[in-house]
Amino acid sequence: EFTQISGYVNAFGSQRGSVLTVKVENDEGWTLVEEDFDRADYGSDPEFVAEVSSYLKRNGGIKDLTKVL
């Protein structure tokens, strides 16, 4: 089950073990991109978060400006 990723309007994530599946949706709710990120592939949590965040930004993730990150 996908849940909204904090700080984004149209990005959602689903966690299974160490694998986080993220997706970005358009205004109609269609999935634009979907990608798996395995936490085990990264040396640290900040590196993992930075990679996921960068992916979302590159692929149309819209920041939720009503929330302070």
Rank of each mutant, 00 (worst) to 15 (best):
E1L: 11
E1Q: 12
E1S: 13
E1R: 13
E1H: 12
F2N: 04
T3R: 14
T3G: 06
T3N: 08
T3P: 06
T3H: 11
Q4M: 09
Q4V: 11
Q4Y: 08
Q4A: 11
I5E: 04
I5G: 03
I5D: 03
I5P: 04
I5Q: 03
I5M: 08
I5H: 05
S6T: 10
S6H: 11
S6A: 12
S6P: 14
S6L: 11
S6N: 13
G7A: 04
G7L: 07
G7T: 04
G7I: 06
G7S: 05
Y8V: 05
Y8G: 06
Y8C: 09
V9N: 06
V9A: 07
N10A: 03
N10C: 14
N10M: 03
N10D: 01
A11W: 03
A11T: 02
A11I: 03
F12Y: 11
G13R: 07
G13C: 15
G13D: 01
S14A: 12
S14N: 07
S14I: 14
Q15S: 08
Q15M: 14
Q15N: 08
Q15F: 15
Q15Y: 15
Q15C: 15
Q15T: 11
Q15V: 13
Q15R: 15
R16T: 07
R16N: 08
R16G: 02
G17A: 03
G17V: 04
G17T: 02
G17C: 07
G17S: 02
G17P: 00
S18K: 04
S18E: 02
V19M: 05
V19Q: 03
V19S: 02
V19F: 02
L20H: 02
L20V: 06
L20D: 00
L20G: 01
T21W: 05
T21Y: 06
V22W: 02
V22L: 05
V22Y: 01
V22R: 01
V22M: 00
V22S: 00
V22H: 01
V22K: 00
V22F: 02
K23Y: 08
K23H: 07
K23P: 00
V24G: 00
V24D: 01
V24F: 04
E25W: 10
E25Y: 15
E25Q: 14
E25M: 15
N26S: 10
N26M: 06
D27N: 11
D27M: 11
D27H: 11
E28F: 11
E28Y: 12
E28K: 12
E28W: 11
E28M: 12
G29T: 02
G29A: 05
W30Y: 14
W30E: 13
W30I: 14
W30P: 03
W30Q: 14
T31E: 04
T31Y: 05
L32H: 06
L32N: 04
L32S: 07
L32D: 03
L32G: 04
L32W: 08
L32C: 09
V33M: 08
V33R: 07
V33T: 08
V33D: 05
V33Y: 12
V33H: 11
E34G: 04
E34R: 10
E34W: 12
E34H: 08
E35C: 15
E35S: 10
E35I: 12
D36T: 14
D36F: 09
D36A: 12
F37Q: 01
F37H: 01
F37K: 01
F37C: 02
D38E: 02
D38W: 03
D38A: 02
R39K: 04
R39Y: 06
R39H: 04
A40I: 06
A40C: 15
A40F: 07
A40H: 08
D41Q: 09
D41G: 06
D41S: 09
D41E: 08
D41P: 02
Y42R: 01
Y42A: 01
Y42C: 04
G43M: 11
G43E: 10
G43Y: 08
S44A: 03
S44R: 01
S44C: 06
D45F: 13
D45R: 06
D45L: 12
D45P: 03
D45C: 15
P46A: 15
P46E: 15
P46S: 15
P46Y: 15
E47A: 08
E47G: 02
E47I: 05
F48W: 07
F48D: 01
F48M: 05
V49P: 00
V49S: 09
V49W: 15
A50K: 11
A50G: 06
V52E: 02
V52G: 01
V52C: 06
V52W: 09
V52H: 01
S53P: 00
S53M: 15
S53I: 14
S53K: 13
S54M: 11
S54D: 13
S54L: 10
S54E: 14
S54Q: 11
Y55L: 03
Y55N: 02
L56V: 07
L56Q: 00
L56H: 00
L56S: 00
L56T: 00
L56E: 01
K57N: 14
K57P: 03
R58C: 11
R58G: 06
R58Y: 07
R58F: 07
R58K: 11
N59K: 05
N59W: 14
N59Y: 10
N59I: 07
G60M: 05
G60C: 08
G60Y: 07
G60K: 03
G60W: 09
G61T: 06
G61K: 03
G61E: 01
G61C: 15
I62Y: 07
I62L: 10
I62V: 08
K63Q: 12
K63H: 09
K63R: 12
K63P: 12
K63I: 14
D64L: 08
D64Q: 08
D64G: 08
L65A: 09
L65H: 11
L65E: 12
L65D: 11
L65I: 12
T66Q: 10
T66G: 09
T66S: 11
T66W: 11
K67T: 12
K67Y: 14
V68L: 11
V68S: 12
V68M: 11
V68W: 12
L69F: 09
L69R: 09
L69N: 13
